[in-house]
């Protein structure tokens, strides 16, 4: 068993990339769930999107052999850029109005 595990460890393949993306995804979920600062929540979302992209590209490389996964990863990156711009604009606006960006203190839509 131990021999098998070392053998598995020393030949990185599809599973290894998927496991890295799974751990990165869990980190992102943890940041989204526990962070009080809205910008750190956004960083967690970026980690989640990166984990999804690793999955797309790993399957594109080892699973299908075509480039469709890479094209979808490009769309994910495009949407991540749009999302970051909009979300940070909203956070700045919230900061101007409420003088805080802690998500647990923001409980009204207008002042």
């Amino acid at each position: 068993m131990a021999q098998e595990f070392i053998q598995w460890l020393s030949h990185p393949g599809l599973n290894h990339f998927l496991i890295i993306s799974g751990i990165l995804f869990s980190f992102g979920i943890f940041a989204v769930l526990t962070r009080r600062n809205a910008i750190l929540v956004l960083m967690g979302i970026e980690l989640i999107l990166n984990a999804a992209n690793i999955n797309f590209i790993a399957f594109s490389r080892y699973g299908t052999g075509t480039l469709d996964g890479q094209v979808i990863a490009i769309f994910v990156i495009i949407l991540a850029a749009a999302e970051a711009a909009i979300a940070l604009a909203i956070v700045l606006n919230i900061y101007q109005n409420f003088n805080t960006v802690n998500v647990d203190e923001l409980n009204q839509l207008r002042d």
């Binding site: 890295i20 751990i23 990165l24 980190f27 992102g28 940041a31 967690g44």
Partner: peptide, 9 residues
Amino acid sequence: TLGAGAVVV
């Protein structure tokens, strides 16, 4: 990747 991700979190 995972070490930096852990620091972020």
